[in-house]
Amino acid sequence: MMEVCIRINNLTVEFGKYTVLKNINLSINDQEFLAIIGPNGGGKTTLIKAILGLIEPKEGNVLIFGKKPTELTFKDIGYVPQIKTLDRNFPAKVYELVATGLTGNWNFRYTKEMRREVREVLAFCGMEHLEHRPINKLSGGELQRVFLARSIIRRPRVLLLDEPATGIDTVAETDFSLLLETLQYQNQTTIVMVTHDWEYAFHHSTSVLLLNKSVVAFGSPKEVFSEENIQKTFGHFGHDHKMEFIIKKNV
């Protein structure tokens, strides 16, 4: 019997008069890999922020292992934000950014033990050569991996990723998914990932949420990826070959 990791009850989020999330109900078991898919502005990032406890919902709540997000310690959750929000103007080196994942603070001094752990996680992500690189000299994909390293160095029980694949080329993406699988199965981490990559979600997730303000479909990838559901989510079927390919495969 799997333990429930994240339970979302009747969640409604409003910004001013505008309802962004409406009456969301779902629960995710421990060690699952949930992929969240939906149109731009569909509320995916908002849902992630509600799970993080950054957004106060209008109604309903989020429970993680039975606790409110604000009652958890910082070590429980790892978070990879959507990259466009980063301040690249901040003077910092890669190891400093990764070490914030360890201490939940910006550090002034670094012990040998901290440096060792940072090197270890960077090696795990295939990035050990970037340890001393200034963060404003990284490519988009490299930066995303640094953020991933930062989020997993604390060995979180839940890992939330907001469109981590944007900017990672397909070759790198293959071992990115290996890396996530290692986390999911060896470290028993529950993974929630916002993605635009249907194929990726189809092959790697254990459940899929189609989100457009409210839950359009939620279930195993095979249940969720149907023409009807996709039309309901995006309002059109479009000419996305990847999408057609997956639906064909599914049938």
């Binding site: 950054l54 310690t73 910082f74 914030t100 603070n105």
Partner: peptide, 13 residues
């Protein structure tokens, strides 16, 4: 930490 990113600092309590 919050000069770097307010949101990440908030997430880290």
């Amino acid at each position: 930490y919050s000069s770097f990113d307010m949101e990440l600092a908030k997430v880290d309590k």
